[in-house]
Write a protein that binds this DNA or RNA. Structure first.
Lengths: 147, 147
DNA sequence: CAAAAAGTGTAGCCAAGGCTACATATTGGA
DNA sequence: TCCAATATGTAGCCTTGGCTACACTTTTTG
């Protein structure tokens, strides 16, 4: 054994590992959430969601968008026909609505706490994907009694 | 032009693209922050930080850890000698301290808002990497006047 | 002090999410 | 109507952050 002169450092701590894994997993879904939310926006606003529009909005190449749309389809969140834009499946719409609601709630809480609006919007973009249901409930409760 | 029957949907919106890029960039640094913080913990607690310990703590294979340590070294945050563990450069220590302080602040704010402790810890793990300086200041101010 | 155990390193694989470059569809307009 | 502009698709490349498998050091221990 390599130099275990020091006592058993910390008790194996599966806790940190679990938290870390969850955070990683959340991250892997974050992009999909951003996409369905944006696609839903575009569908509502203009009746269609084209790869190029999405690319422009996200500041990413259209090739990247096409590839990600492929992933959305594999995950059952979207459908598309060649040269005919993207549409959301019911699962995709549900996710879009949930994401948007959560985004708004996060921004509202940050603002209520005193975060400047622009910073609140910016940070929410990254934060929102890591908010658990429990935290979401706490946020809602906080807003209710903090008008 | 493909069916732009509808009027210019939304005004090109570089804003969203910018936010999205920032969130992506923050994410790419998140892992490094987690590593330096953990390495600092291990060094403080036991005097050394070995790849296997880190792997156990993060629930990841040692090979993954070794590779990431390589990245830490490339970024000037850590040093290491073959078979002799990892150490932080001054830059690495600074980052570790900043990360830890931020983590604690995030947990404190979440708790103050009414998020259950375990959820606060879990969510902070993912959130903390997306908190801007402005938001951090707002958090500190909020805690001060909300005892 | 030699063998077993444990840590470390390296190679090669994978998927995700970027990119550029090039090929193919579609459509608006001259 | 046909052609140029724009969208879309596809291929190939890169980096990250995972993994397993195998080789090699270093400690422990019998």
């Amino acid at each position: 054994m390599l130099k275990s002169s020091t006592p058993p450092p910390m008790p194996a701590e599966p806790t940190q590992a679990r938290r870390f894994s969850k955070a990683r997993a959340a991250q892997s879904y974050a992009l999909l959430e951003d996409y369905v939310e944006l696609i839903d926006d575009l569908l509502t606003a203009t009746g269609e969601a084209r790869a190029t529009d999405i690319a422009r909005r996200l500041g990413v190449s259209h090739a990247t968008v096409v590839k990600t749309i492929g992933r959305l389809k594999r995950e059952g969140l979207a459908t598309s026909l060649p040269y005919r834009g993207v549409f959301l499946t019911p699962a995709g719409e549900t996710l879009a609505n949930k994401s948007r609601a959560r985004h708004r709630l996060v921004v509202a809480v940050l603002t209520a706490i005193g975060v400047p609006p622009e910073a609140a919007e910016q940070d929410a973009e990254g934060l929102e994907h890591h908010i658990s249901p429990a935290t979401l409930r706490a946020f809602a409760a906080f807003l209710k009694k903090q008008p």
